[in-house]
Design a protein around this nucleic acid. Sequence first.
DNA 1: GATGAATGAGCATTCATTCAT
DNA 2: TATGAATGAATGCTCATTCAT
Lengths: 216, 216, 216, 216
Amino acid sequence: MTRPRHVPSSIKDEQLVTIRRNQMIKAAVKLFKEKGFHKTTTREVAKEAGFSIGTLYEYIRKKEDILFLVCDYIYERVMERLHVMIDTESGSQEELVRGVTSYFQLMDDMQDEVVIMYQEVKSLSRQAQEYVLQKEGAMIALFEQLLEKCTTGLRKEEIHLLANNITVQGQMWGFRRWMLQKTFTIDSYAKLQTQYLLQGANLFHEGGQSSGTVRI
Amino acid sequence: MTRPRHVPSSIKDEQLVTIRRNQMIKAAVKLFKEKGFHKTTTREVAKEAGFSIGTLYEYIRKKEDILFLVCDYIYERVMERLHVMIDTESGSQEELVRGVTSYFQLMDDMQDEVVIMYQEVKSLSRQAQEYVLQKEGAMIALFEQLLEKCTTGLRKEEIHLLANNITVQGQMWGFRRWMLQKTFTIDSYAKLQTQYLLQGANLFHEGGQSSGTVRI
Amino acid sequence: MTRPRHVPSSIKDEQLVTIRRNQMIKAAVKLFKEKGFHKTTTREVAKEAGFSIGTLYEYIRKKEDILFLVCDYIYERVMERLHVMIDTESGSQEELVRGVTSYFQLMDDMQDEVVIMYQEVKSLSRQAQEYVLQKEGAMIALFEQLLEKCTTGLRKEEIHLLANNITVQGQMWGFRRWMLQKTFTIDSYAKLQTQYLLQGANLFHEGGQSSGTVRI
Amino acid sequence: MTRPRHVPSSIKDEQLVTIRRNQMIKAAVKLFKEKGFHKTTTREVAKEAGFSIGTLYEYIRKKEDILFLVCDYIYERVMERLHVMIDTESGSQEELVRGVTSYFQLMDDMQDEVVIMYQEVKSLSRQAQEYVLQKEGAMIALFEQLLEKCTTGLRKEEIHLLANNITVQGQMWGFRRWMLQKTFTIDSYAKLQTQYLLQGANLFHEGGQSSGTVRI
DNA sequence: GATGAATGAGCATTCATTCAT
DNA sequence: TATGAATGAATGCTCATTCAT
């Protein structure tokens, strides 16, 4: 993936741009996690990234760009992972479960980044916000594809809602960690949520699986 | 409910404090919705509320207090509504559905407030954040009570997760309005989500309602 | 002494004015001592004095007036005491010593007030400052009278300098308390300073030590 | 002397820090002299110093730091001058006189600075105040050394008091200029005060005037 | 390309003072 | 007379951004 043209840099060397921006993103995630976007200064990001404030501004135009780069980075990683799933799945219910579980795992890995993104999008320009929403839409679309592939008998709007539910349940694992992670591990969480998902949408193939014994 | 002593005011007239703070909250919600907490200045809040900056600071100590008052106000209203539900319900499944639906309605009414709260809690002091989390915990606990009352055969952790799912699904109606509200009305959303909820947790009492025709 | 017309009040009852202002002065001295004039708010003075901010402003026009009243109060007390001395002394050297010692005692009593006054005069209006300087001048003049009465052979300028030295040495007992009061009591301090004073000005009667040739 | 680490700066170039701070001190002294510390705004200091408010704050953290730098600067100059005296004097009475006179000359040069310092120390933090008192203590100690070197037969406490008297008499030349400088020049003032000092402490060599029985 | 000193717009907060009750 | 709510000018301080070296 080439770096999006949304954030221009005055540096010519494309490779250097990528290196420096990755340093910036890493530094920014660390700091935004601790103090939030607004309470983090550009100087702090530069320092944490290992270069001067002057250098920082060679690779971005405005502070907001840093946030945008972070958001972009997150979606890139999420989409990458989801694409792998979609492309390899052939449509069975197990594969749906595997896909959702894999997404939950990713959300576990990227808790901090996701929380940052959701808490700070408001700070982006309208334009950048639209870009992010569009990415979020693309993510939902992937889940819709996955659901379409792996289920039958669901109406479009049902698929839409389920895709949203999956997405949000992945995110809430990070958002509500202070509550959920007292009771669940990511595995037990993923298991129970996918079970509710399948049952809720009445997706269990065979017969009487909605008898009491089904759970767990 | 008297206003909590968490935010001291230098004005002695308790009633006046309540009036002015409600003006402030209303103004703040409007502005925070438009521009976020950080980009809203205290002067703007004062002006929107209809009094001077000096007067604003007679009723709060720090800008953060405004945000806290907003959060507190939201929880007060949510808890109030939930309490009514809990207290009047006697335990049938219809009442669970009614409770959840009522909560979704409330979340529809308070979309802006809820979005603000979730996007800006990070800006609160640690202490205030803890207060908010505690309130959120109390809300979850109410849903757990409701579930306990209206279901059987669910393990503690299942009830916990379901309570969280309900809560988050209510909130996401506001958060993801740009996506969900293209497809659903609050009623159709509530209906489908509660259906998934009941089915997911295997709560339909008897018979054929989980046949294909059940959906919708 | 009638209260000086320098600080007008909107209250008619002269007696009440005196009472309230004395409350104010007492409160102000306490607070200025602790935090200085600038860091003390008018509200704090009012509260400490036992009435409301509104009432405070019935008895003064500006915050500065409080400081002025304090200064005025101090001089009134100092002058009062010095007058007693001057009026009763008949001119012997013992009486000079007694007068100076008595002044030192007073400075010991009024340490806080004196320190406040000297540290904060700068905050007064030019006009008020002149009034204070004039009072200080009057005080010096009293010491000059005392010296004149009790000594012989001193030139005008010598008397002037000695009067200033006495005055300042009284004040420094308060100013430099952190240093002087580790080594001296007010009594031992007074004794040693008056001794230096008399010797320095060559005022011991008996013996040859006051031979005219000594002075440079 | 490197500038003390008490006031950190975010500028790395040590030399530049010294230059800018000297500009600040000069500007501050001028303004504080005119209007006092509290009535002088940081913007005014910056403007007078010839740079922007932003730049000012690159070299200090808080307004108080400016005052501290002024105090520190004064003591540095005073101590420097006193050290020269102490180091070169070998112990004769003439040299004591020369030392004191030189100090008086310095106090004449630094009248404004000294007055500012004494009027505004109260505005410093407790910590900074202690630093200043400690410097003042060091100054007294130097005078004690000088007295010890140049006199005989004086008790410790006498030396202590005399050192304080010298110090304060130097300072009062600035404080009471409105009164003293009508009558004296710094030279005539120095001459008369040193005379009183020597006589007062009974230090004239010739003749019997220092007979032990005189004191007390 | 990298640096970091300089800039100043912008904002939260304070507090003396007024005035209607 | 006494009260205290309302006011808004004033000010300390921050921090994104620029640009000369």
